[in-house]
């Protein structure tokens, strides 16, 4: 008889792995409430909610959050448009060099961020583009496109080519075919890809350090805050906020894709 239950050591190992991944996150939450502001003492000498108030009152935090949200939203938008177009082009037709193009599209996410960052900085210099919102968005779009593309291309491949032909045959032009046939069939894939792209953009550090000008996105702000020995728990308060903002869309994307495979 073969048991389909996991053995005890395997369970313990799995539990250990999960704890290793997630217990540090609990410390982030814990130190958001500590009364000690210069170093992280364990156990915390006391608990307080005052850092939430302090964080709420600091304009630099609001600026960083605002910038991060704007960047993430715009980079995701760019990625949705371009990623969908690439996916449509690569999934629907066979042409010479298709595999190479597909690889080139995916490459930015495999490439170390630092390489992408240096490359983009060099390119922006060459084109004499000033560092700012635009350059940050372009930097983020490089990897956001990949996420959207990967989600969309899988769906496009499953979409029968004759659906598009049927739509055209029935009198719909290209735009109507996209609006009424293609979009409804790839919408959930785009939503999942878009959410993932948003989350990736929101906590990106490396590429941003190379492409940002004077502004700080939220992760950059946190990085600079850590080296300062004042009001440390404020960083933790913001970290808690980031965890929530990043986690919720990923959770939603997970449920959206899961729900769909459950339909079949």
């Amino acid at each position: 008889m073969r048991s389909d239950r996991a053995s005890r050591p395997l369970k313990l190992a799995a539990l250990g792995g999960l704890l290793f991944l997630h217990v540090p996150l609990l410390f982030v939450f814990l130190y958001a409430f500590t009364t000690e502001e210069k170093s992280y003492q364990f156990p915390p000498p006391g608990l307080t909610l005052k850092w939430f108030g302090v964080a709420f009152g600091r304009q630099d935090i609001w600026d960083a959050i605002g910038l991060s949200l704007r960047v993430a939203a715009l980079a995701t938008t760019v990625a949705l448009v371009l990623g969908t177009l690439i996916a449509a082009a690569l999934a629907r037709r066979q042409f010479f060099g298709r595999e190479a193009v597909s690889l080139l599209v995916i490459l930015p996410i495999a490439l170390p961020g630092i390489v992408t960052g240096i490359a983009l900085r060099a390119a922006f210099n060459l084109m004499e583009i000033d560092y700012g919102l635009l350059t940050i968005i372009l930097g983020h779009a490089t990897f956001c496109i990949v996420v959207v593309y990967n989600n969309a291309v899988a769906r496009f491949r499953r979409l029968s080519g004759s659906l598009v032909e049927a739509s055209m045959d029935l009198g719909a032009d290209g735009f109507q075919t996209f609006r009424y046939v293609i979009l409804p069939n790839i919408a959930t894939a785009l939503l999942a890809g878009g959410m993932l792209a948003f989350a990736l953009s929101f906590d990106e550090v490396i590429v941003t350090t190379f492409t940002a000008g004077q502004q700080s996105t939220l992760p950059i702000w946190m990085l600079s805050e850590l080296v300062r020995p004042r009001q440390r728990p404020v960083t933790n308060v913001v970290a808690v906020f980031v965890i929530l903002v990043t986690f919720l869309p990923i959770l939603a994307a997970y449920y959206l894709t899961r729900d769909e495979s459950g339909h079949k």
Binding site: S160, L163, A166, M168, D169, L170, G171, D173, N185
Partner: peptide, 20 residues
């Protein structure tokens, strides 16, 4: 003349009904 401007319609082998 594109397919949508022709006075013909097609019944596809795999039916190609819109699933949504």
């Amino acid at each position: 003349v594109p397919p949508y401007a022709r006075a013909v319609n097609t019944v596809f082998q795999d039916y190609a009904l819109f699933p949504h």
